Computed example of a mutant assay.
Amino acid sequence: MTEPNYLDTPQGRRIAYHRSAGSGPGLVFLGGFVSDMEGTKAVHLEDWARSQGRAFVRFDYSGHGQSSEAFIDGCIGDWAEDAMAVLEALTEGPQVLVGSSMGGWIALLCARAMPERVAGLVTIAAAPDFMTTSMWAELGADGQRKVMEEGIYEIPSDYDAPYRITRGMIEDGRKQTVLDKPLALEVPVRFLQGTEDEAVETDVALRLLAHATGPDLRLTLVKGADHRFSTPECLALIEGSVEQVLAATGEAR
């Protein structure tokens, strides 16, 4: 694993990243909750972008991977700020954002806040508003009470360690929602979703498609695919979706 470079953000956080030079629109990969930039999808897409001569950036949000700060001190708003800082400092012109799970939510926040820097979107099991919907529900009544009264609560995960959810994450998540207010996406968008996703239900993808407005929005459901969406077939579908978005912008190879 090669050593990352670092970006100091306007908020004083230090973001670890890898960047590959190439033509634009470039690609920026936005990872998931408690994930990092060394995941299968991020590294695979980086290799694909290099083979196409396409600029590419992957990075760790603050509190994730090799970036600064403690995870429990962060929230969706902070991680969206990190993504926007990466867009501003490490890319040129509009970019195609590829967002996985929470990264799909953050991609939508970026598209809403800085549409001039977004050429298109590809989301993989996008989880918009999950802090106030699925995560809040998963806490249950006891967990909800504890996180609000004590400030932190742990819930089991299907990965290495339990998720540590804080009151700050919940309260900030309520401020970052996208499904309860207009969501205009004037760029080509491809939503990808597996039907066997154990973390994000198919209804979330359907709701997002129904709620967002734009001239070129498409949802692909993959029967049997899980939340990781990392089989060879799923990775090929991600590549193809990026190619579709680039073609719609007039920038395909």
Rank of each mutant, 00 (worst) to 15 (best):
R117W: 00
M169E: 09
R174H: 05
I155L: 11
G214R: 12
D142T: 14
T202V: 15
L183T: 07
A125L: 06
A113L: 03
V222C: 00
D180Q: 05
S157W: 02
E138A: 15
L139M: 14
T123M: 02
G151V: 04
L185Q: 03
T132K: 11
A199R: 10
V187E: 01
R167V: 02
Q176T: 15
V222F: 01
L109C: 10
R207T: 15
E149F: 01
D160G: 07
M135W: 09
V189A: 02
A210C: 06
P182M: 05
G143N: 09
Q193S: 08
T133F: 02
M135I: 15
T133G: 03
L192H: 06
V204Q: 03
Y163I: 13
V147F: 08
V222T: 06
G140K: 12
V204M: 13
G143I: 08
Y159C: 00
A126R: 04
V118W: 00
T132C: 12
T133H: 10
E138Q: 15
E186S: 14
E154L: 12
V187S: 04
R167T: 09
D142R: 13
A210Q: 13
A161L: 07
G168P: 05
E196Q: 14
P162L: 03
R117C: 00
H211W: 15
A137Y: 05
H211G: 07
Q193G: 10
V122T: 02
E198R: 11
G120Q: 03
V178M: 10
D160I: 07
A199S: 13
A184H: 10
H211N: 10
R117K: 10
L221N: 02
V200R: 02
A137G: 12
S157Q: 03
G194D: 07
P215L: 00
T195D: 09
P156C: 13
M148Y: 03
D203T: 14
H211L: 11
L209P: 07
C110K: 04
V204G: 04
E138H: 14
Y159S: 09
I170R: 04
A119E: 08
D203Q: 14
P115K: 05
I165T: 09
G151P: 08
R190A: 01
F130Q: 08
V222L: 09
V147I: 12
K146E: 08
L192N: 05
R117V: 00
M169G: 11
P215I: 07
P115F: 02
T177R: 14
Q193P: 05
V200E: 03
V122L: 05
G151K: 13
P115V: 06
I165Y: 04
G194T: 11
E171N: 03
L219K: 07
E154K: 13
R190C: 01
D172Q: 09
L179Y: 07
L185Y: 01
R218G: 03
A210E: 12
K181T: 13
D158L: 12
T166N: 11
E116R: 09
E186Y: 04
A119Y: 05
A126Y: 01
M131C: 09
A141V: 12
T195N: 06
G120F: 03
D216K: 10
A137D: 15
I152M: 13
L108M: 12
F191S: 01
L192W: 01
A127W: 06
K181E: 15
R145K: 14
L179I: 05
L217C: 02
R207F: 08
D180A: 00
P128R: 08
R164F: 02
I170M: 14
L179H: 04
R207W: 09
I155V: 14
L121F: 03
E116T: 00
D158F: 06
V189K: 04
A125C: 15
